[in-house]
Design a binder for these strands. Sequence first.
DNA 1: CTGAAAGCGCTTACAG
DNA 2: CTGAAAGCGCTTACAG
Lengths: 355, 355
Amino acid sequence: MAANRPGSTLSQIATSLGVSSATVSNALSGKGRVSAELADRIRAKAAEIGYTPSLAGRALRTGRTQVLGLVLPDIANPLFPQIAQAIENAASEAGYGVLIADSRGETARQTEAINRLLERDVDGIVVVPRLGTRIADLGCPVAVIDSPSTPGNTVSADHWQGGQLVAEHLAGLGHRDIVLIGTNARSNVQNDRIGGMKSGLSRQVRVEVLWVETIERQAGQGCPLGLEALVDRGFTAFAAVSDLQALRALTELQRAGIRVPEDVSVTGFDDLVWSTAVTPSLTTVRQDLATIAELAVQALADMIAETAPQQIPPTGRAVAVAGAGRVPMTLIARQTSAAVAASSSRRQPSERNAP
Amino acid sequence: MAANRPGSTLSQIATSLGVSSATVSNALSGKGRVSAELADRIRAKAAEIGYTPSLAGRALRTGRTQVLGLVLPDIANPLFPQIAQAIENAASEAGYGVLIADSRGETARQTEAINRLLERDVDGIVVVPRLGTRIADLGCPVAVIDSPSTPGNTVSADHWQGGQLVAEHLAGLGHRDIVLIGTNARSNVQNDRIGGMKSGLSRQVRVEVLWVETIERQAGQGCPLGLEALVDRGFTAFAAVSDLQALRALTELQRAGIRVPEDVSVTGFDDLVWSTAVTPSLTTVRQDLATIAELAVQALADMIAETAPQQIPPTGRAVAVAGAGRVPMTLIARQTSAAVAASSSRRQPSERNAP
DNA sequence: CTGAAAGCGCTTACAG
DNA sequence: CTGAAAGCGCTTACAG
């Protein structure tokens, strides 16, 4: 008997009711044909003694552990807890537990982490992959949450559309000179966001992209981004691909005596915890992680059903996720005033764009 | 057979070697007496075919799932990922998987979450409890990570001592007028940190405690904390019980045109991800989460061993954690200059404390 | 030192 | 509609 469970088993119910444990199993699962009357008595008894099935016994018999693995890329990414929560929630709705495995920022560990999960016989794995890693066939259902432009992506936020929302918002405030801030040019997520932002801005808008990694490679980790100089050059908005970079920009600007949002606007992505804690609050774009998690778990559940030890009759039900792996993002506008809006009339695009 | 495992089992090794599966089991576990020569051949064969034991089979037999549960209080707390990572790491070192369960900020869900884990037959549970909840006897080993002053606490950072470090640091910079910022007066962790800070300051230092919840109850969520007025009243340092509040203070001060660290110092707790991303970086105090996690997992492992289905001979080995549940914190001083230091000589304590 | 047997708790064909 | 039997993969006394 498992150590931590009150010792109630199928066969105890069976003997106490004078029936076979097969019948108890059938009644409780609703599978086999059991008379309604007997089934009721069995369910009543089960409730009475507080029976909970042993997952270990079931797993051994069915080959299904009812556990999913969750592989996360880098703990430093503050989006992690939200994803973990969303997955845990969706999984437990669907009757799965969630085993976590962290790559700790190293690609090699991602493989290790996946292997640990495989050894524990998880039924499927949700992977938020590390940059540039392609998840090989694991012989086990996998759902990848990355970006729509990543091959092998199962479901993710529509980062491109999110970028467009930011662009429209800033344009609406009258901004005509915008700096986009990214950290890593090889990230599909970031490229989607930046691409979306660019695509949402008219050609009259002056856009410059700042890659933090490039600056840091020359000036060292955590160095100033030189935003003051950009303000001097007439830029009035800083749109970062993450709230962390937005925060960095905000404090660097404030520290230089530049007022946000009066002098310049700052936007981020993902609505992380500090976006409302700072003054002024950050305008940002939120992912619908609940939906993303549901779709990911659903995709796994479908794959698991398909891989069934005994084939399920082909009911023609398609995998729910196909083509739906692009979940819209939502703008959270918190900085809604901008000096530019008032003065934008005097800045004719022609002034700037004329050769 | 489990669906996702390459079909290698004990008995396959056994038949391929012409021995019994009991012997294979013994050789692989090193328990029963098996001749060195045979054991070698068995291990070789196991390695050759890439044998990994079925945890389900083992669990059913031994009553041990080799899985720990991790119950976290509120996803909004950005310390979460670090704790989760530390626990996952320590657990996997000790041969355990980690099943997560999130309380989503509600006390009722904490109980639900624990029950879900119990139903999955975890061998033990690490709980970071919600404020004011006492974990009842679950009939299953539990390690509580909270604060040394919480009854039932198993292991945690020495928040009081951490507070003292902050106090010494600020005093060393010459600060004589310090505001402590807390969010919740019922939190043991926060009270420890604040108590520690107070205890580390001489009576000549003017100290005022700001409870954010009190301010927000009157002025609404996310309202300004009125720090500018405090600066006008002569306070030169703001020591928050968390980096989030430190960030809030920093941006509110900067927004008001007050310079950090030239005019005032700001400190936080926990060294969260943004503490180096902001300008200026935050001085903060770091928890040794790796050690805390190791001790928590070790405590569980010991309890699990004691609860063994068949009693282990009393070897007299005490639970390793007893009395050691208070892990020192480390100051990370990032704001090391302060105008006060230079001008502190003109501020005699007697000026302020005279009646 | 090695093996045969039992059994952990469950589910699934298969009989009746 | 119900039950007897087998078996998932493992470990543990117990014989030999």
